[in-house]
């Protein structure tokens, strides 16, 4: 019985992975290297400027707005406000997740060419990306279940996390963008000197 399960597990697993390779090959654009360059440049641009500014995030999760609406607006307006804030905050987390995905795509796109690639580093970076993406998913679920104003402590933490993610990603992307753009368009030797 163990043999049967093993054989079917490996055999069907192989078929599933082949199917995934085939699906991926259908979605890969057939353009040549020029298109790849443009894609890389666009990805970097999105990474650099795509994340929402910190003040917007602070405003999104700010209690003052909610306090004002709660004190001066009727119940249905309060409900609508909460609904809208919840929708916007979830959209924001999704946006952050998309940007992290772009960052991962960029990293993989570059690391596949590295002759000095380290398996340990790759696994570490891969785990970091995966856990951050999972955290985004959990935050999304948290916002969906309890809303941005459900618990004040969590809200503060969420705001802090939002600001931190923006700041951290911003720094990270600035580093990548500087390297990436220069590398895409300029002489690599000169870059090494300036860095």
């Amino acid at each position: 019985m163990i043999g049967l399960i093993l054989s079917f597990g490996i055999g069907l697993g192989l078929l599933i992975f082949l199917l995934l390779v085939w699906r991926r090959s259908q979605s890969v654009s057939p353009e040549g290297s020029g298109q790849k360059l443009i894609d890389a440049r666009h990805a970097l641009q999105r990474l650099q400027t795509g994340l929402l500014p910190a003040e917007f995030v602070g405003r999104l999760f700010n209690h003052e707005d909610w306090d004002y609406v709660k004190s001066s607006a009727p119940t249905d307006v309060q409900k609508q406000f909460l609904r809208e804030r919840k929708r916007i905050s979830i959209s924001w987390v999704r946006r952050v997740r998309t940007e992290v995905l772009e960052l991962r795509r960029f990293h993989l796109g570059q690391s596949r060419f590295q002759e000095g690639l380290s398996l340990r580093t790759e696994i570490r970076v891969g785990l970091s990306f995966t856990s951050l993406l999972l955290s985004c998913r959990m935050l999304e679920l948290f916002l969906w279940l309890r809303g941005p104003y459900a618990v004040s402590r969590a809200l503060r933490s969420t705001t802090r996390a939002a600001e931190q993610v923006c700041a951290i990603s911003g720094r990270s992307l600035a580093f990548l963008a500087a390297r990436g753009f220069d590398a895409l368009g300029k002489d690599s030797q000169r870059l090494r000197v300036t860095s």
Partner: peptide, 24 residues
């Protein structure tokens, strides 16, 4: 240029992600 700085790039990305993850 990125090729030359693979380790540095990977390490910095990992640091950023680690901090972001802890806050989240």
């Amino acid at each position: 240029a990125i090729e030359a700085d693979y380790e540095r790039m990977a390490e910095r990305i990992r640091d950023r992600l680690r901090s972001a993850r802890s806050y989240l």
